[in-house]
Design a protein around this nucleic acid. Sequence first.
DNA 1: TTTACATTGTGTCACTATAACGCAATGAAT
DNA 2: ATTCATTGCGTTATAGTGACACAATGTAAA
Lengths: 256, 256
Amino acid sequence: MEFNKELKDHYLKGHKKYLRYLSVDCVIFGFHQNDLKVLLLKTKYDGRWALPGGFILKNEHIDTSAQRILKKRTGLDEIFLEQFHVFGDPDRSTKKINQQFLKNIGIKANESWMFERFITIGYYALVDFTKVTPSPDNISAACEWFSIYQLPEMILDHQHIFEEALQNLRMQLNFHPVGFNLLGKKFTMPELQKLYETILGKELDRRNFQRKMIATGILKRLKETKKGVAHKAPFYYKFDLRNYKKALKAGMHYFE
Amino acid sequence: MEFNKELKDHYLKGHKKYLRYLSVDCVIFGFHQNDLKVLLLKTKYDGRWALPGGFILKNEHIDTSAQRILKKRTGLDEIFLEQFHVFGDPDRSTKKINQQFLKNIGIKANESWMFERFITIGYYALVDFTKVTPSPDNISAACEWFSIYQLPEMILDHQHIFEEALQNLRMQLNFHPVGFNLLGKKFTMPELQKLYETILGKELDRRNFQRKMIATGILKRLKETKKGVAHKAPFYYKFDLRNYKKALKAGMHYFE
DNA sequence: TTTACATTGTGTCACTATAACGCAATGAAT
DNA sequence: ATTCATTGCGTTATAGTGACACAATGTAAA
């Protein structure tokens, strides 16, 4: 079995290629049908789900590791990516290994570097849902989107990592206009508002929202309106990349 | 030389005790004489200065590592401590080693785990300056406070780490009332204002500052006033730990 | 003892940002 | 032609912010 050979090698010799004790986990957010979603992998050995993750090459920048992992799972380059926390509890990596799974690929427990402690660096990514082609990795049976409000059971502390990521995203959303990374090229104001409401988990006033967004100066209203809606057609907007980057940097206003 | 033996062992066998490729660096802030200061160590082998740092024990929580390092350098327990960023550039750890220094302790270059790549987890700490007893470690000749406006030349990317820490502190200061950790039990309003001004690097209006601080609800005015000042004596304040913790959690106000 | 003076405590005022809400315009469906 | 959900723009009351005035305080100088 060529597949098992490859996997076995990874379990036994992976640390020659990667940094031991260190991993990267990515919370990949996408927005689709008025719902904020997260991309998850179904593990082969116990059927539960996991955040896309991986290891850091011996001579690789950690941000590059995260980009590499994202590229593999989504097919996308140049993703909005943000390091948000390091999870360093020595007990976060379980030592309870599925023995049968190990037997299947022909290794003994405690023989693999992968069942030692792992400190993981958490990143979150904001991607355009429509552009993503989810693809599972070696040790996964599936790669799918889940609504953040209906997450399946996850391995290790991945639920906790997700929650921390969401909290960071919410914080960031209030001080930098990062939400746009989740949308396509053009979008209507109600769509943008739904996005914000979904991320923040609460409803916002339609009219105040519009005013604030316009006030950021990063939106450009197009002449085109949305077609085929059974009511007044909303305008499309796109965002001004130049002003966007300015707004990103300016972001918060410190005290006076 | 018993000292060299110990140091040599650390260089050669340290990775048996600690996680390889991983370190913790701490930016320890203190406030003294209207000046924000950082605690630095003077390296023995090239005389430049470094942030207090260390390694992570194989079975230790990373936050505990940081606490342990802080305890050793400052003598303090239960310090306000915040993880703020991971520095993961593969080129951040220099491979240019002082050969003479290595000879002195009797090891060859490339023989030590310590000259490989290190990914470092940055923490910043806020301490009561008056309670700290700075003490250098094995490989350091001195441990001293420096004004953040007059920092000496530092090794590796420690200047960069410091700047990132300061930026994070400023951000945090605006949304959580963390500054108090830098002061003693009681303080006057002008003292608190100076602290804020020093951290933020700008002057604030005295009267508006007072209004805002009172409004946080975490201050308690004492009946005692400061003695021996050649003008109207300011009141002392202390802070209400209960309300403080509430304010820490509440912190930022999300959108509406 | 009186006066000077730097600094503190409290208050005011104009301006802005924000939340809450009104209303006419739109355009497909009836 | 009418209905109606939804959009775009506007109004108002309120709270927060920055800028500044002035009296009170307490040591030091006269």
